[in-house]
Structure formats: structure tokens, C-alpha cells
Amino acid sequence: MRTVSLTIDGQQITAREGDNLLWVALDNGIYIPNLCAIRDKSEPMASCRLCFVEVEGKEQPVTACTETVTEGMIVNTRGTRALSLARRSFELLMASHSLDCAHCPKSGSCELQHIARYLGTRLKSKQLRELRRDLPIDDSHPQIIYDPNKCVLCGRCIWTCREHLGVGVLGFAHRGFQRMVTTFEDEPLAISKCDRCVECIGVCPTGALLPRNETKTRVTSES
């Protein structure tokens, strides 16, 4: 396998030719915010729009997940334009996120909090308005609580459920603003074909999929 050398944030890096820039950076300890990237997936979803970086010779910032490394590539993950796009994308996600860290069991291990810290932005957007969908929480399942209002549509749970374990309970449905992760015909998780591996909880970056025991107090206190 041929290798190439490239520079990310001034750091000299050697990688296999054809490798994906995002994973090369992450594997070399250089963080680039991301939600929808899945290592084993052959084609990046490129949907969260958080992993913008600046590559020398390219006019506009590009998403790292859709770039392959090339010889002599010079990458800046902290460029102002790249970061401002990432911040905007994050801000958009958060403006439609049911933000309630104080009561969210995910708080502390939530990737959204982590990304906000990295980008130096608040979780609650000051500029944008709240655009919520107010979807019903699915607490039918004995082990899982699913709150679609906290979902950022990264698709990790779907990938884990379908491509990884061969069970296709979760999937994307609807278009545009209504796009969401749901079960076939929106049936409750409890009566879906879920085989209770609960792997999805582990991959969810947010508090959208949570183990039931942790969420009980929150749900009862809210209802």
C-alpha cells in the first residue's frame, strides 16, 4: 500500500493513500468535530456538516469526511472560515434540539456539549430562533427511551442496528424538516422487531437514545 505524507495543523503525518482525511486526523489525535461519520461506512453521509476544514489550494472550506488524503496536502482544521461554518451548522442543530442539560442523563458524556466546548460556542443559540418539532417521546420499550427531539440525525444508531447487526428496526423517515429516525411505520419500539441488544444506546452521541433506568426519574418528573 502506498503512503502519502501530509500536514494537518502543522503536524507532519503519514497515511495510506486514499484514506479518509477525517479519520486520518482523528487517528493522529487531531480532533475535528463530527457526528455523522461512521468509519466502516464506505460512502460518507456528509450530512452533519461539522467537519469543515481548510485545505490549501481549495477556495472554500471542505468537509473532511469527503476528502481523501493526497501527497503534500496541507490542512488547517482551525481556519476561521471552516470554524465559522462548523459553528453555524452546530448552532442550527442546537436551535432545533430540545435542550435540557440539567435534567438530561447524557449530560457530561454528551458529544454536543463536547463539540460546543471545542467550538467555543454556547449550546443555546442567541441568534437563531428555536424551531422544535415537539415529537412524542417513545418510552414503550423496556430498556430504551427514545426522544426524537434530541436526535441530531447522525444515523449512527441506524448503521449499528441495520448494517452492523443485520437487524433493521431503525431507519430514516420523512423528508425535509420532518426527517427523523424511527421504526417501520412509526410503530413503538416495544412492538418493533427490536431484539434488545441496545447497541444503539451506546453509539448515540446525544440523549436521544437512553437506557430506561437512567431516564425514569426525568420522564416521570416531566409528565
Binding site: C48, R49, R175, G176, R179
Partner: peptide
């Protein structure tokens, strides 16, 4: 289509 953040939101 709702796939990416900028266009959807």
C-alpha cells in the same frame, strides 16, 4: 430532502 443540516434547518 432533509439530509444535511444547512439545508434542512
Amino acid at each position: 430532502c432533509g439530509k444535511c443540516t444547512f439545508c434542512r434547518l
